[in-house]
């Protein structure tokens, strides 16, 4: 059975979707990813869709679901690398992609995740100006 590989990258998980997802594959991804977040207790998930040409409402729902589920497990989800044509189509379709953050590329996505996690960590910590990222 074909599965989308999930890589652990430091404190985060990285999923690169290279092919058009058919329904079962997408549902498996959702399952695997959530299991992995819990098992490795990661704080962030990066989903790279730069190679995806079509995001319809089904796929949009999967992405949104992953975001909401990870949030319940205390991890943030960032969808990175969306193609301009895909973004325009989603807006026209009226799909807001709730529950996930977006970033231009994997680097920027990591940066975003780090800043989100840091904000959470600093809550309750003593205020310390030196810890701000560069």
């Amino acid at each position: 059975m074909e599965r989308i590989p999930i890589l652990k990258l430091g404190a985060f998980l990285l999923v690169t979707i290279q092919i058009d997802l058919y329904d079962r594959l997408a549902l498996h991804l959702e399952e695997d990813l959530v299991a992995m977040v819990e098992k490795k207790s990661v704080k962030g998930v990066l989903i790279d869709i730069s190679a995806v040409g079509i995001v319809d409402s089904f796929m949009g729902r999967i992405l949104g679901n992953i975001g909401s589920m990870c949030k319940l497990l205390d991890a943030e989800t960032v969808v990175v690398g969306m193609q301009p044509a895909v973004a325009i189509t989603l807006v026209e379709l009226g799909l807001p992609l709730k529950g996930v953050y977006t970033a231009l590329n994997v680097d920027k996505g990591m940066e975003l995740l780090r800043s989100k996690i840091e904000i959470e960590d600093t809550i309750g910590d003593d205020y310390d100006d030196d810890t701000s990222p560069n």
């Binding site: 969306m82 807006v91 977006t102 231009l104 920027k108």
Partner: peptide, 12 residues
Amino acid sequence: LKTVSATRLMGA
């Protein structure tokens, strides 16, 4: 609004 939404979806 559409332009802004699309930009945000891209992560900008």
